[in-house]
């Protein structure tokens, strides 16, 4: 039996109730209001109706640009990241020697902060002395190619960001590894008795049982990478031809560089709507491929 007591309950919940009121619900309502105003923080908010939304949907050419850049980054970084972290987890699950050491090595890059990562990778991508071109140069010269400019090339800047994001697959790898280790051994034994080869075991045992973890990784990865900010702010800003103008970067500029608090609130709500819709679609699609144990299929 759990205890029922009103006073205790509200006492324990009070930090969150207060926090939710002042740092959650209150600001949310304010953000709704502000998105319909013209507000620079120095003057009073001025009601403009739907003008902010009209501007961002139909007039501001940088919004589609920022959306495209962000989607481009997300569409490549998230599936590739999920794929590679699963591959490394599968390798580590092969009874390798020194598992804790490997796990540490692959996880290490993810503890590096966004700013440090931005500073470091800006140098890695440096066309003249950067690590990447230094390593690639013999290969490039063999094919008679010149050094890629990476962050300074509007076509290569976003792929460079995707490449950098793959450095951080360690978190996903650990989650996959835990998922793999929780699959009961008997299932593989049973499959083997039924004559299933290794690939067939992977296809019919590992993948279905791991699918909830894959789904979780894709969903969270999407939400996270859609909000890419710190590295972009540190490495390139908007980049050549706005090629790395990501959505949150634009939102931040509108709010804290141009002090267009109303417009940036509208941008934030549109961001919320996009994240919500895509997450709902992912959940809907998940019914087709995610296997939940115990659920009547």
């Amino acid at each position: 039996m759990q205890r029922e007591d009103r006073r205790d309950f509200w006492f324990f919940l009070s930090p969150w109730i207060v926090g939710f009121t002042f740092f959650g619900a209150g600001p949310i309502l304010a953000a709704v209001f502000l998105s319909f105003t013209d507000y620079s923080i120095f003057t009073r908010p001025h009601w403009v109706g739907l003008a902010n939304y009209r501007e961002l949907l139909f007039q501001d050419p940088l919004v589609p640009k920022a959306l495209f850049n962000t989607l481009f980054y997300t569409v490549f970084a998230v599936p590739l990241g999920t794929f590679f972290s699963l591959m490394v987890a599968l390798l580590l699950n092969q009874k390798v020697k020194g598992l804790p050491v490997w796990r540490t090595l692959y996880y290490l890059p993810t503890v590096v902060s966004g700013v440090a990562m931005g500073v470091l990778w800006r140098w890695i991508f440096n066309p003249e002395v950067g690590l990447l071109n230094t390593a690639l140069r013999p290969l490039l010269q063999a094919f008679g190619l010149s050094d890629p400019k990476w962050l300074l090339d509007p076509h290569l800047a976003k792929p460079a960001y995707v490449l950098m994001s793959l450095w951080g697959i360690g978190g996903g790898m650990i989650i996959f590894l835990a998922g793999l280790q929780s699959i009961p051994k008997q299932l593989y034994e049973a499959a083997e008795i039924d004559g299933a080869g290794r690939f067939s075991q992977f296809r019919h045992v590992t993948l279905p049982l791991l699918s909830p973890v894959v789904f979780f990784s894709l969903t969270m990865g999407f939400i996270g990478s859609f909000q890419i900010f710190t590295q972009a702010y540190v490495m390139t800003g908007r980049g050549v031809d706005n090629s790395t103008l990501f959505y949150v970067l634009y939102l931040f500029d509108q709010a804290f560089r141009y002090f267009r608090m109303g417009y940036s609130s509208a941008l934030a709500w549109v961001l919320f709507a996009i994240v919500l819709v895509i997450t709902l679609v992912q959940f809907r699609l998940a019914r087709r491929w995610v296997y939940y144990e115990g659920a009547a299929s």
């Binding site: 502000l34 804290f256 608090m261 919320f272």
Partner: peptide, 11 residues
């Protein structure tokens, strides 16, 4: 997303 409450909180 925290960006929604970022502006009102700043204010």
């Amino acid at each position: 997303p925290f960006q929604v409450t970022m502006v009102p909180l700043f204010v």
